[in-house]
Design a protein around this nucleic acid. Sequence first.
RNA 1: GCUCGAGUGGUGGAAUUGGUAGACACGUUGGACUUAAAAUCCAAUGGACAUUAGUCCGUAUGGGUUCAAGUCCCAUCUCGAGUACCA
Length: 967
Amino acid sequence: MQYNFNEIEAKWQKYWAENQTFKAENNSDKEKFYVLDMFPYPSGAGLHVGHPLGYIASDIYARYKRHKGFNVMHPQGYDSFGLPAEQYAIQTGQHPAITTAENITTYRRQLDQIGFSFDWSREVRTSDPKYYKWTQWIFIQIFNSWYNKDTDKAEDISSLVAVFEKKGNASVNAVCDEDIAIFSSEEWKSFDSKKQQEILLQYRLTYLAETEVNWCPALGTVLANDEIVNGVSERGGHPVVRKKMTQWSMRISAYAQRLLDGLEKIDWPQPLKDSQTNWIGRSQGASATFKVNNHNAVIEVFTTRPDTIFGVSFMTLAPEHELVSQITTPEQKAEVEAYIEATAKRSERDRMADVKTISGAFTGAYAEHPFSKEPIPIWIGDYVLAGYGTGAVMSVPCGDQRDYDFAKHFNIPIPNIFEGVDISEEAFADKGKTVIANSDFLNGLPYKKAMKLAIYELEKLGQGEGKINYRLRDAVFSRQRYWGEPFPVYYVDGMPQMIAAEHLPIALPEVEKYLPTETGEPPLGNAEVWAWCTKENKVVHNSEINNATVWPLELNTMPGWAGSSQYFNRYMDPTNDNEIFSKEAMNYWQDVDLYIGGSEHATGHLLYSRFWQKFMFDRGFVPKDEFAKKLINQGMITGTSAFVYRVQFSKSNYTIFASYDMIDSFLNPSSKSKYTYENNPLGSYIEQFGEFDFQKIHADVSLINASDELDVEAFKNWREEYKDAEFVLEDGKYIVGREVEKMSKSKYNVVNPDEICAEYGADSLRLYEMFLGPLEQSKPWNTAGITGTHGFLKKLWRLYFDDNGAKFTDSAPTKDNLKTLHKTIKKVEEDIANFSFNTSVSTFMICVNELSTQKCTSKEVLEALAILVSPYAPHIAEELWSQLGNTASISTAPFPTFDASHLVESSKEYPISFNGKMRFKLELPLDINKDQIEEVVMAHEKTQQQLQGRTPKKVIIVPGKIVNIVG
RNA sequence: GCUCGAGUGGUGGAAUUGGUAGACACGUUGGACUUAAAAUCCAAUGGACAUUAGUCCGUAUGGGUUCAAGUCCCAUCUCGAGUACCA
């Protein structure tokens, strides 16, 4: 009987689908286990072999947990809103919904053929109105909430209104806009409805604000900071400029501290936690206010070094700071205005690229030092950012390199306030070694004490307090795109109104063009049926807008992260049309036990999702304030590109393709190439045609065999331009050069899982992806190696079957059989616990090699082996299981139990080392003591031979491990 | 610049608490089977020297701790990821 993988895999995939083998129920006596993958964006290119890596790992874990008796939920879906489908629509007019549906069909087929144990009855698509109904619903909940700092959680907006009605806003401790006027309860009641709405909007967790945004003209949309790489858009690399727009924002900053604290209780990779910590950017220090001389104004600054306050020799404001125009003296006006104009012209990118050039201008105004009362000149400079802190700094040149450089450049004094430190060359910023001097009451104090005292004294003056600042900014939530969730929002007199939840979803309207309108409105501005009728509670034609009962709808759509910030919860009850999820489902599944996905989402999806989860927790919708207990980042699978070398000669148009070693020996004469300058075949060409130059050309990796040899005929047929190519071979072969690069179409190194499945089968693919290396590490794909895992499966099959059929018998397992089996069980369980899937594949190989050598035919052992392998190679395992006579699927068969008694040894082969170097091995019983071991070892002839008459200084014996003889 | 991670044969990688470095594969070489190829099986495979026995060198580099270091400590170099005037 042959291992016919195509037949076996098709058979079991059909079986699983028909029997809904992996459908998870929302209630069960079994313990729950929720395994989640980051759902894919269904791109037009389909899957390449890199994509399923994380899914295979999570699938192994999910299947293992089923064997261990858990009720496992392992759902899958599609993050199907996104820019590529919209770009395609702009180019072709094809509706993104159609493109998306087609791509999903391809994805589904590709995923199915790999044999994942997904519960497809729970599939979600973010672009499905039935799904985004609940994304819109969450938006409404966020709109109807404010953040109460006293209770440290989000509350319904009605509790805020109640406070306003009772005692105005003076006592309210909320996360809100900064410039809110104080009003009494009487005043609140006297405000008209519009005024009240305006005020509430300043407190809501999502609010409209005129924000400076990253506008990308080429894409016609606003980009988030994490969608910009090196000043250009992540997608397409288009330039990005700053622009003011009215946008929805999410008050994620309210959660900064809790997002930080929450990291401590979740088992996520440290680098990912570090990058979130970094992104949130907590810094502890103080705020201080400086009076401006001859003005009513004060400048508020944030500093992490209040201990250095006596080192202040100037202040710097961001050019955009609102005080600049007020305090600038007439003499300095021209210079200051010229500087502001110059900085405004410079794009963000220029400013970033040009950090070293120091620029600024003096305002002519002076501030008063809070303690010394000395006048301090006020400057403006673009090294101070308007968007961080207060947009103003107290400059301490002796303690901050940027202030130092600025002071040097403009000849501002640099007073030294550090004891025993030379600051003639650079600023001194080592907090640990700081001892303050020349600072009045702070003299002689180290950093921490000086900081505390400075804050205390500032508070006494009423000119400052201890403060914590965060880098994390509120998240802009509007996008000028078509293919995203519409907001459930219409506008009355310019004030946003939420559509009642019962009328959701508000479906995306049809448009003729997917581009922004001529007047610069988002693509939804092209929709003709996009107005809200408050009488009929439905979307109606724009012509019906009467500003009485029919109002215009919001034209922006939500960003990509909206849909992905709630999908893990929606999976728990994905078809519920009445609620986002039932209480029962949520109470059963609670949270994600294992989440696997790429690290590129560290500060995007994974931060926003944690934010929404905390919000949902505050409002009582979910029982956990962190959505995923454990997270693993799978590494990227890179491609192994193949290169051919086209050689051109200086004296002729003649070109040839030279094999790798010939080029290599010219480039690296020192390398171990088989050619020397004399015997290189290129030599004769050079004599004839002159010096050469060469080009590296990507060749399609499918034309290369396992020995890096190019199929020359196939290459000629590959592309028209190579039809008549001439090759210079080595030993009759053309060897390509190889390099590891990111998988991409243009590099011809993309490997499609379809071909691998057809040629070697899904089980081989699954094993190989795991076998490549540690899950979290990035590693190159090389199809050649798959023969290793494929060969293993054939060998596994031959343990059960030969040409005459089944080999397994009811014979009792031998001692060796059991030893091999239990060794394997132990190792595989440890490996799965550590997500070390690569080493369990080698363990299987060792196990099968050993059982083959032992000629094991015991059904007892072979049944257990099938279960062990089943999470990794489920198709062959199911087939073996059923051939062994079982009628049900292997998927819930209990995992074999490890029994240590089979591994007990009576003796051990000790390595005998001399001065730490292993010289020979000696089999010794394990039940003898140290003295006895020493006696046997010392008496051994090889020991005497090694010692050559010397007496050892010391003999180290670690029973069960090693013997080391020193001397 | 800062933060984090990583450097082991020709290649992917293994070595879980310091205790036999290179498991398991790929590739390569030789052999068996075959008209031949594929497939399969067997053997060798870190490097150098040595007929054998064996010896020496080897985990990026240089130091250190230890009976013993890929593993721990210090310094340096290289690569990768994130972040960037954050006061």
